[in-house]
Design a protein around this nucleic acid. Structure first.
Lengths: 125, 125
DNA sequence: TACTTAATGCAAATGCATTTGCAAGTGCAT
DNA sequence: ATGCACTTGCAAATGCATTTGCATTAAGTA
């Protein structure tokens, strides 16, 4: 049976506090504030478990390793913004129209991903 | 100085004949029709060279290794379609409006990627 | 045709992200 | 408070995609 450890709690807390997709190393850095001995292997083990348990959802961006966000955030259709300065990824609300117009004849669409690149608020300031 | 070898010619031919982004292994498979001894290491070396020479352009999709397409194709703004059945990637013409409406206040957009998932014409048939 | 040296094939080596073995640590049911 | 077995930390091991060393092959020029 699953145990509530301080490392798991710290990781959960990080996800609930930070409302954007996080990479394993980002999670480690943030969660170490609370549990300084936390290890990257434990982060990976916990992420894997949390995805299996549908608490987290993986977020893939072109050319980089997966980040993770709360499943409840993933349940609402949305897309992502990647800051080229701080490398953070943010959720974007909403979507666009007209995607199906891009499809060639005979192609069928089952889903889509949109990533916007640029600079975030903090990095613009 | 650069030499025109049969393997380089075969790889060029594959790209000009196949009008979609190709993964290294796909290139190997296709180019071996012409040069059966072609090796994956040579494909990688040649790809690297062709990107440096701006003959090819890398195409990154979420969660998978880079594919490559002709630079001249990349010069026209476009997006990609990935077939979930045959795993091929296709170019899509055109784009959509309204992307900047997705941006939170203070964020600045410098570019974007769109990937549509589904089944291609051949796999639907 | 002969020579110089870039390119190739093959196998071994890298570089990363991620996973795993194992001994020690620690929830939590009793 | 005790004990079982799930978790953790640490280091070593994987799994891939990609790169590299080296002996050999073969462009392209003289």
């Amino acid at each position: 049976m699953q145990r509530q450890t301080s490392q798991r709690t710290a990781i959960e807390t990080v996800f609930r506090a930070t409302k954007r997709p996080l990479a394993p190393q980002e999670i480690l850095d943030a969660a170490r504030d609370e549990v300084p001995t936390l290890n990257l292997a434990t982060v990976y083990r916990t992420l894997k478990r949390m995805v299996e348990d549908r608490f987290l959802h993986p977020v893939e961006l072109p050319g980089e390793p997966a980040r993770y966000e709360l499943q409840e955030a993933a349940d609402k259709h949305h897309h992502h913004f990647r800051c080229g300065t701080c490398d953070s990824v943010f959720d974007l609300k909403g979507c666009v129209n007209g995607l199906s117009k891009l499809l060639p004849a005979g192609f069928h669409m089952s889903g889509h991903d949109i990533v916007i690149y640029g600079d975030c608020r903090a990095c613009n300031a």
